[in-house]
Computed example of a mutant assay.
Amino acid sequence: MDKSSKSKSSLSVQTIVLAEIAWAVAALLFFLLFSVTAPGEKRPFWYSAGTSFFEAIAFLVAAFLCYRNWRSPQIVSGRNVWLFIGLGMFCYFIGNLLFSYWELNLGIEPDVSPGDFFFVLTYIFLIVGMVLAVASRRLNLEIWQWGIVAVIGVLGIILAGAVSLPVGAPVQSVLMQPVAAQTVPAKPSPKAPSGKANSKAATPEKSKPTPAATKSAPATTAKPSPASSGQPIPAIATEERANTPEWAKSLEELLSPLKPILDWFYVITDILLLIIATTLLLAFWGGRFAQSWRMIAAAAFSLYIADIWFKYATNRLEGYQSGGLLEVFWVFSGVLFGMGAALEYDLSSRSRSRSGRRRAS
């Protein structure tokens, strides 16, 4: 019975790990094949839905595996550790669903969405869980190891600070630009010919035909004007914006002042996660449970990479659309958290069974 249960446990962890790796590879291929678009071309709906699907499944599975660890009395590193990490995974899953609904179904990309509240909880729960993991283990790091932690922390601060500062004016979101283009340039565009006509004729009487042009112009120029600039995104976004429910627009305006606070929150928590992940990696290095916590540390690093890239892209790349190649690291993060939880469960089960055998003997 012991051998069969051990083989089943071993098969189960192998199946989970292989499935997680396969999911990560599939996500990477999906991003590699379909993330590149022509300049000014909007990413298709199915691609954005696919990226959200890969992230959602990765974090949902990770939440379930962490929940399994929390329910097991055999977990050596502490059940509360996996409770908070699992809550973080589940909150990210909910936040991703809300963000996807906001972006795909409502057709808007606000500075702050309701999903951000769950993303905030994700970071809080992850930091608490990883701090509990560090606190449960006596840290006997050497001076050079503390030096590594300090160097990585400083580099993380410099990198996060560099990408958080926009170049010149703040870059507006992709879907907010068409609104400005419609409300501001729509009026001057018909007046531009009248201005030239006035300069040639030098009479105010020729300025009267311009209202007729302004009445007929929006019906014909509202859609072609973005195409003339080589960017078809504004026309599509304007139509989507027109179909956006009023409650969503009002909620967007209500939440938008929170953007500076959330930006600083994400920067600080990313740096904390980076430092804690480095400390975990060095603290558990070489032990029996080093393999699982290496996965957790790698998951935190992947989360940091994806967050930093997204912040860089939204601040430095004008007209950036979500779904870039490096956003696959969000999928990697969920996969690695799940692998770490599965390995921890397997190692803890084996450790308890061995200790039970020794007591029986």
Rank of each mutant, 00 (worst) to 15 (best):
residue 4 S to T: 07
residue 223 K to A: 11
residue 128 V to A: 04
residue 176 M to D: 15
residue 327 E to D: 10
residue 136 S to K: 12
residue 323 G to E: 09
residue 36 V to P: 10
residue 20 E to W: 11
residue 350 R to I: 09
residue 105 N to W: 07
residue 231 Q to Y: 14
residue 128 V to W: 03
residue 268 I to P: 06
residue 266 Y to T: 03
residue 284 F to I: 01
residue 130 M to I: 11
residue 33 L to P: 05
residue 228 S to C: 11
residue 128 V to I: 10
residue 59 F to H: 07
residue 318 E to L: 09
residue 112 V to I: 06
residue 160 A to N: 08
residue 203 T to I: 13
residue 178 P to F: 02
residue 48 S to A: 13
residue 278 T to F: 01
residue 187 K to Y: 15
residue 247 W to I: 01
residue 30 F to D: 04
residue 70 W to M: 05
residue 228 S to I: 13
residue 78 G to W: 04
residue 62 A to Y: 01
residue 327 E to R: 04
residue 64 F to T: 07
residue 168 G to M: 03
residue 276 I to K: 05
residue 96 N to I: 03
residue 322 S to V: 11
residue 258 L to S: 07
residue 198 N to W: 15
residue 326 L to F: 00
residue 187 K to D: 15
residue 66 C to S: 05
residue 259 K to N: 10
residue 244 T to H: 06
residue 21 I to F: 05
residue 320 Y to T: 09
residue 151 V to M: 08
residue 8 K to C: 07
residue 39 P to Y: 03
residue 126 L to P: 00
residue 279 T to K: 08
residue 295 M to P: 03
residue 303 L to Q: 08
residue 46 W to F: 14
residue 173 S to V: 12
residue 313 A to D: 00
residue 302 S to E: 01
residue 96 N to F: 00
residue 151 V to H: 06
residue 183 T to G: 13
residue 245 P to S: 00
residue 254 L to A: 13
residue 319 G to Y: 07
residue 132 L to D: 10
residue 46 W to L: 13
